[in-house]
């Protein structure tokens, strides 16, 4: 069976070390928070200026002065702190964040990331913090579907969309497999409803098989 988006998020959460400082990108990566075990000690960073971000706010909890990077109302946890934008991005760029989780249009086999702009006519470029996150965190995890709706691979020899960062992605979680990107190239950690040989054929790129058993 292939993995659902929820199962991908759970897999990412399971790989985040206890006590890590983590930034979850806007959209699907935000749902990783729901799968972090209670007592993990993971501290969430939101680039608009907060560490110790809590879950989404509802009803009486909603405070227009307390939002996440997606501008949605959130809550604060004990031990939270607030800081201005230059500090927020200094802690990112300065390598203080352990993990960031991002979505992607494309990832290349050398870890290049394209996730901010499609270059389509009439589209308006908007980058936000994507480029800062891509090069800042110690480890960059991407979660995405492995193919577009029309079957085009999103894990590619070289990105065709405009780049967000070069050689910055460490791991890619998809519906069909998890891949590590390292100096030796691409390694398949696990597969779901497919095989490594089938992935080689469909993606047309070289990849190693991890020593771990496939599920």
């Amino acid at each position: 069976m292939t993995r659902t988006t929820d199962e991908i998020a759970a897999a990412v959460a399971a790989d985040i070390p206890p006590g890590a400082f983590v930034n979850l990108g806007i959209g699907q990566p935000t749902t990783v928070a729901e799968h972090l075990p209670a007592g993990s000690g993971v501290v969430l960073h939101t680039e608009n200026g907060m560490l110790g971000m809590g879950p989404a706010a509802y009803g009486d909890q909603v405070d227009p002065d307390l939002t996440n990077a997606g501008k949605l109302p959130v809550t604060q946890l004990p031990g939270a702190s607030y800081f201005h934008h230059a500090d927020s991005f200094a802690m990112m760029r300065g390598g203080h964040l352990d993990v960031c989780v991002l979505g992607a249009f494309q990832v290349s086999t050398s870890g290049d990331l394209a996730n901010w702009h499609t270059d389509a006519p009439q589209s308006i470029p908007a980058v936000g913090g994507a480029m800062d996150l891509a090069i800042g965190a110690k480890q960059v995890f991407v979660m995405m579907s492995l193919f577009t709706n029309d079957g085009t691979p999103k894990l590619v020899p070289a990105c065709t969309y405009p780049l967000t960062g070069i050689g910055c992605v460490n791991r890619v979680y998809t519906d069909l497999a998890t891949f590590d990107i390292g100096p030796d190239g691409l390694t398949v950690r696990d597969t779901f409803g497919t095989t490594v040989d089938e992935l080689r054929k469909r993606l047309g790129i070289p990849m190693h098989r991890a020593a771990l058993p496939s599920t």
């Binding site: 680039e47 201005h84 934008h85 230059a86 927020s88 991005f89 200094a90 990112m92 760029r93 470029p125 908007a126 980058v127 936000g128 913090g129 994507a130 480029m131 800062d132 090069i135 800042g136």
Partner: peptide, 25 residues
């Protein structure tokens, strides 16, 4: 369009009297 961290840092540099800076972003 300016990456968000570069935007903040370019403004910070103006306020801090920094002539320019090198950033990986």
């Amino acid at each position: 369009v300016v990456p968000q961290g570069n935007l903040a840092e370019r403004i910070r540099a103006a306020g801090a009297g920094i002539g320019a800076f090198f950033t990986p972003t």
